[in-house]
Simulated scan of single mutants.
Amino acid sequence: MKKSDVLKQMSTPLGAPAFPVGPYYFRNREYLNILYRTDLEALRRVVPEPLEIDEPLVKFEIMYMPDVTGLGAYTESGQVIPVSFNGEKGEYLHAMYVDNHPAIASGREISAYPKKLGSPRLYIDSDTLVGTLDYGSLRVATATMGYKHQPLDPEKARQEIMQPTFMLKIVPNYDGNPKVCRLVRAQIKDLTIHGAWTAPARLQLFAHALAPMADLPVLEVVSASHIVTDLALSMPEIVYDYLAESSD
């Protein structure tokens, strides 16, 4: 294989890359989102500067994606923290657990999504929308929400999904020091809302050393949403370089 051919590759191994070239389009992507109040000091321990915390809030989310071009079908769960950066309100992606290797590899390598392997599920149990997350054989989270009790304003749903998101891109060098350490920003711009609802919701988090969601405890459920969409992800942009700042 010529050097020019190597440079065209998106991922290894060269003969069978971990994921195909995008863009990736999501059809009927289904969200269960629960916004809850948590401990402010716990948030301060995990949100990196220069992001700022406005309120002690966390969004727990589970997303079922049955039709993703190039990646197939998978489910994802995580915690998202409302923050501000240079006066712009957005969300910091704190942790994501995914059951699909191409989605994990592409999310980490192409972008900066903090993905690791987990076993999330989103399903209907009688009159209840249920989201669960297992790490290995152990339960980490259980979320429940009434199924389609009340319509949610589509514009509010759109604003919720299209919030700017901030992520850490960290790539180590061979000496153990960071080669890349950046804060990046992304925002969904291509979005179609098929339906949106709200209802009473509850969330339980269980302590786990390697999936420490419970380190951001649930003190009060503020709101919940169930949203079905089509969308495409946008490429991130660098907004802060930790290595450049540390060399000044």
Rank of each mutant, 00 (worst) to 15 (best):
K2H: 08
K3N: 08
K3C: 05
S4P: 05
T12P: 03
P13G: 02
G15V: 14
A18R: 14
A18C: 08
F19C: 12
P20S: 07
F26A: 01
L32M: 15
L40M: 09
V46N: 03
V47Q: 09
P50S: 04
D54S: 15
E55R: 12
P56F: 03
P56Y: 06
L57H: 07
K59F: 00
E61I: 00
Y64T: 03
V68L: 13
G70N: 13
Y74I: 12
Y74P: 06
P82E: 05
G87P: 15
E88N: 12
E91K: 11
L93H: 12
A95Y: 02
S106V: 13
E109G: 05
S111L: 04
A112N: 10
Y113W: 04
P114A: 02
K115W: 11
K115L: 07
S119K: 10
R121T: 04
L122D: 12
Y123D: 09
S126M: 03
M145P: 08
R158L: 08
E160K: 06
I161S: 04
Q163N: 00
P172C: 06
C181D: 03
L183S: 06
Q187P: 04
T192W: 06
I193N: 06
G195F: 02
A196W: 09
A201W: 04
A209G: 12
L210Q: 13
P212Y: 14
D215A: 10
L216I: 03
V218E: 02
V218F: 02
L219G: 05
A224H: 07
A224L: 01
V228G: 00
T229A: 08
L231M: 12
L231E: 12
S234R: 02
P236K: 14
S247N: 11
S247Q: 14
